[in-house]
Simulated assay, not measured.
Amino acid sequence: MSRLTAALAVGLVVALAAGGGLSFRDATATAGPAASPGRDAVWRTIFARPASAPQSAPSTPAQIALGHDLFHDPRLSGNGSASCATCHQPERAFTDGRPKGQGLDGSTLPRNVPGLYDLAWGTSFFWDGRAPTLAAQARFPILAEDEMAGDFPTILQRLGADADMTSRIAAAFPGSGGVTEEAILAALATYVGSLASPAARFDRWIEGDDGALDAEERQGFALFVGKAGCVSCHGGWRLTDDGFHDIGLAGDDLGRDGRRQFKTPSLREAVHTAPYMHDGSLATLDDVVEHYTGRLIVRPSLAPTVVRDLTLSESEKAALVAFLRTLSSEKTITTP
């Protein structure tokens, strides 16, 4: 990559990170004509995966393995019948396939179960961003009466009676004082932070394989970073800005700071995380595209990055959906 192209890429990354509503027209004006090698090089820089995870909290294999087992351990729930994996099912990209989560008693929870991939790079967690760390995030569902309904005195007693678990916690977190709430949450956070989304066909294209995407999918990518404006919120390799936006959905649910703003979900593994949005109101990727092409509720709080008058032909809609599918690994998901 030339120095000029690299500099342009850095500038575009900064614009995306700042939530500046970068459009394909802006990028084209900067990087050259559509489908030019220079423009592709810029986008390939913006969407390239990092070589490694953040090193702010290095983890060990023992910590990750312990977190994995605790994630699947029903002893963390009040009645011993549910675990974190009950709702965050690995075979469904750590979602549950329902519009909204299901509580311990079979009740319907207020929001859709979010996926857990690539959260080591996250800056806040939950649809409303209420948790500042992965450890804080893990604590909420364990204690919530309508989720796992656990309590830590009981959890510590259960796990403390397990000699193998006691020794594993002591070995994984030396100096933790044994089976403690802090050690359990740290192990869960370490495991969740280790979950990296699988490489997809889009990644092969980013890495330089021009044949990884067909003509329709490349058209969809041009729309994604162009007139559809998707890249304004779904930029970077994780396909999220970690921001909070009103995207014109119906309903009275309030998110960030008591406003109609909810966290931008990653589009990684989107094929396997339906239904979509914080309320699970859109069943398919086609429904998502339809929402942005005429079904928006336009109100003063609507995010400025959302294209209010977006019009796409049927072939353009199909191309955009085709591209979105390239962001997911190719595996079969079964209905629960």
Rank of each mutant, 00 (worst) to 15 (best):
L4A: 10
T5C: 03
A7Q: 12
V10P: 01
L16D: 09
L22H: 08
R25M: 05
T30Y: 06
T30V: 10
S36H: 02
V42P: 11
A48D: 01
A48H: 02
R49C: 03
Q55C: 07
T60D: 04
Q63V: 01
D69W: 04
F71M: 14
P74I: 01
R75M: 06
R75C: 09
L76C: 10
N79C: 09
A82R: 15
A82M: 10
C87P: 08
E91D: 13
R92Y: 06
R92A: 11
R98V: 06
G101L: 10
L104S: 06
L104Q: 07
R111T: 15
P114D: 12
P114W: 08
Y117R: 12
D118M: 00
D118P: 00
W121R: 00
T123Y: 01
A131T: 03
A136Q: 14
R139D: 15
E145L: 13
A149M: 10
A149Q: 14
P153R: 13
Q157E: 12
G160E: 12
T166F: 05
R168S: 13
R168E: 15
P174T: 04
S176F: 05
G178P: 02
G178C: 01
G178D: 09
V179H: 11
T180F: 10
A183V: 05
I184A: 06
A186P: 02
A187L: 05
T190C: 02
S194M: 08
S194C: 01
P198E: 11
F202D: 04
D203K: 09
W205C: 03
I206W: 02
D210C: 07
G211L: 07
G211Q: 12
L213N: 14
D214Q: 12
E216D: 07
E217A: 15
G220K: 07
F221V: 01
L223A: 03
V225H: 04
G226A: 09
G226P: 15
G229K: 03
C230W: 00
H234Y: 01
D242M: 04
F244K: 11
G248N: 07
D252T: 10
D252Q: 11
D252K: 10
D252W: 05
G258C: 10
K263T: 02
A270C: 13
V271G: 04
T273G: 00
P275W: 07
A283M: 03
A283D: 08
D286Q: 05
D287I: 02
V289M: 00
H291L: 11
T293S: 14
V298E: 15
T305W: 00
V306H: 08
V307M: 03
R308G: 11
L310F: 02
L312C: 09
S313P: 08
E314P: 06
E314R: 10
S315V: 15
K317E: 08
L324G: 06
K331H: 15
T332D: 07
